[in-house]
Nucleic acid binder design. Structure first.
Lengths: 193, 193
DNA sequence: GTTGTAGGCCAACAAGTGTTGACATCCATG
DNA sequence: CATGGATGTCAACACTTGTTGGCCTACAAC
């Protein structure tokens, strides 16, 4: 996957490692940090709990490995100022639908300090450059990025975590149609004071 | 507090009961359901863990009692169609700032089935009538209420749970200025399809 | 074929959990 | 004063948790 950081060790246990990570992501996404027990994850992966410890050290290490992911935000330079809202909402919706990593991260972040910090890092580091590029006043960039985060994470919360039925039932295109103007306004409109 | 449903028993243990509930709310709000242990709550309240069981049956009962609250949403009939956005945002912000009940509810709802359902009930039951009253097409009321929930809960999530610094630093008036138009649009603007 | 090492399982530990029952103590009522 | 229920403490229960170390097995290198 990432040849530059790891020289492709290709161990014999790679299948097991992957099974553990997959099971961990699913458990963290549905149960949160505390109720996702190592025993349950190991059982899902079809191996012994002690293997989890051997490969990931401890539960924190397992969680860190399970949610080590990149948002792959579009390059800020490639965004046109007028379409940034729609582009962001579409991209984020795709990321949430693709797999359970972000759901796991959000659910854990709600009760776990490390999870919250990781969420903060991801959204801060990735969204801030976009905001800095397109928003009128650079000093407001972080506040505007926070507003965008609030809107995007709020949708994810109601749709993927709390599962409000009307939020779950919204078609992706409808979500984009409603949210894109909001995000666009938070990023590029003049301060409403 | 509520004379119509309970004839003011005024037991000798009322102070203890209140201490337990206060400690429980604080623990649930900061730690979530699983890590808010009965022992820790009892210690905060300065009494024995067994008292919690005696007065609230079990942990679920304690949680239910701790988050039994009313949003006190303004009467839909009293809302003017053009100010509903600002009125809702202002009201919700006040509720979140007032005490930790909603923070506890949100944090627990992220990992606990009962908590999520309670959150769903509160926002569904209280926001839907407002949406039904002010939105143009009654069939879209639930979808529009969900969008409003997403925006409001997203702000609460980033500000009170994940504590993104720029979201925490926003002044209340600024939050209202930014979010009110969004909520207003979700409720009263024509469908953007 | 021997051997070293990685993969895997099993049993156990120490700590912490919700929960329970037995016992002490206060206080209002008879 | 006596008495009974409410208030409170203490110790323990059964269970689950993360984590550890010992042991067995397969496989690749020599």
């Amino acid at each position: 996957m990432n040849q530059s950081t790891s020289p492709a060790p290709s161990r014999r246990s790679d299948a097991t490692r992957k099974a553990i990570l997959d099971a961990a992501r699913e458990r963290f996404a549905t149960d949160g940090y505390d109720r996702a027990t190592i025993r349950a994850i190991a059982k899902d992966a079809g191996i012994d709990p002690s293997m989890v410890m051997r490969y990931y050290g401890n539960k924190e290490g397992l969680f860190a490995a399970a949610v080590a992911i990149d948002l792959h935000l579009p390059d800020p330079a490639s965004l046109t100022r007028d379409d940034v809202g729609r582009a962001l909402v579409t991209h984020f919706l795709g990321m949430w639908e693709k797999n359970e990593v972000l759901t796991a991260l959000l659910r854990v972040g709600a009760t776990n300090q490390a999870g919250a910090e990781r969420m903060r890092g991801i959204f801060g580091d990735q969204l801030l450059p976009v905001a800095r590029r397109v928003c009128p006043d650079p000093e407001q960039a972080s506040a505007r990025a926070a507003l965008v985060s609030a809107q995007l994470l709020g949708l994810a919360l109601t749709r993927y975590v709390l599962r409000f039925p009307p939020a779950v039932d919204l078609a992706p295109e409808e979500v984009v149609a409603w949210l894109a103007p909001t995000v666009q306004r938070y990023l590029t409109a003049p301060h409403p004071a």
